[in-house]
Amino acid sequence: MDLPVVWANYISIGLFLALGIGVWSIPKSAIVPEEYAGEAWRDLRWWATGLILLQIALYTFFR
């Protein structure tokens, strides 16, 4: 716990990256109904990826 504060940012970024890997390990069939399979915007894994990238940007900036 004596690590410099900036390490908290690095840990947060690492957690978000791990979350991103977890998100993409979920099969598409569990996210998008068959009826919507042709509509890419309904794949919530992309929504999650956008959010994760935004969070990484925030924790990179505010350190």
């Binding site: 947060s12 957690l15 979350l19 998100v23 569990a30 996210i31 994760i52 969070q55 925030l58 924790y59």
Partner: peptide
């Protein structure tokens, strides 16, 4: 942020 977003993503997908 860290106190909401990861949990919200997990809630949404799982």
């Amino acid at each position: 942020w860290i106190g909401a977003i990861p949990a919200m993503i997990i809630a949404a997908l799982i």
